[in-house]
Simulated assay, not measured.
Amino acid sequence: MPQAWVFFTDLEPAVMFGLAGRMSSFDISGYGVYEAARQVRFDKRLDRDVHTLLVEAVQV
Rank of each mutant, 00 (worst) to 15 (best):
A4N: 08
A4H: 11
W5A: 14
W5N: 14
W5H: 13
W5S: 14
V6D: 15
V6G: 07
V6T: 12
V6Y: 15
F7T: 02
F7I: 04
F7G: 04
F8W: 05
F8D: 01
T9S: 09
T9M: 10
D10L: 11
D10S: 10
L11P: 12
E12T: 09
E12I: 02
E12Q: 09
P13F: 09
P13K: 03
P13I: 04
P13W: 12
A14C: 03
A14G: 05
A14Y: 06
A14V: 00
A14N: 01
V15L: 06
V15D: 11
V15W: 01
M16N: 13
M16W: 10
F17L: 06
G18F: 02
G18W: 00
G18P: 10
G18N: 02
L19M: 12
L19T: 12
L19R: 03
A20S: 12
G21D: 02
G21V: 01
G21Y: 02
G21H: 03
R22G: 06
R22M: 07
M23Y: 00
M23T: 04
S24C: 01
S24Q: 09
S24K: 04
F26L: 13
D27M: 04
D27I: 02
D27E: 01
D27S: 02
S29A: 13
S29N: 12
G30N: 03
G30S: 06
G30W: 06
G30T: 00
G30Y: 06
G30I: 08
Y31L: 00
G32A: 09
G32I: 13
V33M: 05
V33L: 00
V33I: 08
V33Y: 06
Y34M: 13
Y34G: 10
Y34T: 08
E35F: 14
E35Q: 10
E35K: 08
E35V: 12
A36E: 08
A36M: 13
A36H: 12
A37C: 07
A37P: 07
R38I: 15
Q39G: 01
Q39D: 11
Q39I: 06
Q39F: 13
Q39M: 10
V40R: 07
V40I: 14
V40S: 14
R41V: 00
R41Q: 08
R41S: 00
R41K: 09
F42A: 06
F42K: 05
F42D: 06
F42C: 08
D43S: 11
D43F: 00
D43T: 04
D43H: 01
K44R: 12
K44A: 15
K44W: 09
K44F: 14
R45T: 14
R45N: 15
L46G: 06
L46K: 02
L46S: 13
L46P: 02
D47N: 13
R48M: 15
R48V: 08
R48W: 12
D49R: 10
V50Y: 03
V50L: 02
V50K: 04
V50D: 03
V50H: 05
H51A: 10
H51K: 07
H51W: 10
H51R: 07
H51S: 11
T52Y: 10
T52Q: 14
T52A: 05
L53G: 07
L54N: 07
L54V: 13
L54D: 04
V55R: 05
V55F: 03
E56C: 12
E56N: 11
E56A: 14
A57Y: 01
A57H: 04
V58R: 03
Q59R: 15
Q59N: 15
Q59I: 11
Q59F: 10
Q59A: 15
